[in-house]
């Protein structure tokens, strides 16, 4: 009995650390599916549609990764995680990547054992108010009560902004972002604050969206980036360069519709390198030569993903703004593929 215990304990000590230290890519390939942690429910980013399918901007990022690794954008499994559990889920390898709504901040990056890959969405905190209040600017909100949902840096941004402008405020913090909207809708607060992307998405749930307006000021910068575990730089490279490839594709004019044609006929050397015609960029990261081609073909370039879920033709109706390509005055730029 005792000796069996000692053997079991020794086995656990020897094997457990070894398991977690193995390369993430090998684990994912062996498993045959990429595990992504996403927000449980936010329209446009990660939500369940009428047919019961999980769709959204964040989910397409996960699909692009799956396509790059397996050549099949359907080889993924989604784990909806709230902000409270998300970091632990990644740290304990319950998921391989968080394609979530987390702002890249110093404290989340340093000392957390997690790394941010690259900014895929530039957001910023905004305020919604009732039109009947006749408020035109956040600076007129002195003394207002503000409903917020917790889980981001929302509370801190409001505290910093109001104090630096010598304004008073009362903050009513909800654990759930949709309850914050509901309480605002019922009149608990003068204003409802969140990332502008979230205001646009969750604002769809208001009783009468037309009675409300988003104020012009953006009081914070919220660079939203997918996250991976620290300590596996190959995996981090795979994630970052897959996302870069989506942006590079838009820069180069490659879309899911014309990617086959460009692969066959294009004379542009960067397109040929990216799509694996003249160079095998994938193998340096342990991926097939067609990794970028698969991601673009099956999911689309960055612009396509944005337009599909967030753009003017969707219910969220967001413009590209800071998320436009650098060539169009935005901040999206991929490093060169060479």
């Amino acid at each position: 009995m005792t000796s069996r215990w000692i053997v079991a304990a020794g086995f656990a000590c020897a094997v457990l650390p070894g398991l977690a230290a193995a390369a993430t890519l090998d684990d994912v390939k062996a498993r045959g599916a990429l595990h992504c942690g996403t927000a449980p429910n936010i329209p446009g980013y990660a939500f369940t549609d009428d047919k019961g399918d999980r769709r959204g901007f964040d989910i397409d990022l996960c699909k692009a990764m799956a396509a790059a690794i397996f050549g099949d954008a359907n080889k993924f499994k989604l784990t909806p995680v709230g902000p409270r559990d998300a970091f632990a889920a990644l740290q304990t390898a319950a998921v391989d990547i968080l394609t979530h709504r987390f702002t890249w901040t110093y404290n989340r990056d340093a000392g957390s054992g997690l790394n941010f890959t690259r900014v895929m969405f530039y957001d910023g905190q905004g305020f919604m108010v009732r039109k009947s209040l006749n408020v035109k600017s956040v600076n007129e909100l002195n003394g207002a009560s503000i409903c917020v949902g917790q889980g981001t840096t929302t509370e801190l941004n409001i505290a910093d902004y109001f104090r630096s402008h010598s304004m008073k405020y009362t903050i009513v913090t909800f654990a759930d972002l949709d309850e914050a909207r509901r309480a605002y809708d019922e009149g608990r607060c003068d204003s409802w604050s969140n990332d502008r992307g979230s205001l646009a998405a969750r604002g769809l749930g208001l009783k009468n969206r037309d009675d409300h307006v988003i104020l012009p000021e953006t009081i914070s910068k919220e660079p939203i980036a997918p996250m991976v575990r620290q300590g596996d730089s190959q995996w981090e490279d795979i994630a970052r360069w897959t996302f870069d490839a989506l942006i590079a594709a838009e820069e180069l004019g490659i879309t899911s519709a014309n990617v086959d044609e460009l692969k066959a006929k294009s004379e542009n050397p960067e397109i040929k390198r990216l799509l694996g015609v003249t160079d095998d960029l994938g193998q340096k990261n342990g991926l097939p030569a067609s990794w970028a081609y698969d991601a673009i073909k099956q999911v689309g370039n960055y612009g396509e993903i944005f337009e599909r879920h967030l753009g003017p033709k969707t219910r969220l109706g967001m413009s590209r703004g800071q998320n436009a390509l650098w060539t169009n005055g935005g901040m999206m730029m991929a490093p060169p593929f060479r």
């Binding site: 409270r84 970091f87 404290n107 917790q150 840096t153 801190l156 913090t173």
Partner: peptide, 12 residues
């Protein structure tokens, strides 16, 4: 809400 929520989020 305050400690296991906001504080946890902010401090990581």
């Amino acid at each position: 809400l305050v400690f296991a929520g906001t504080v946890l989020n902010q401090t990581g």
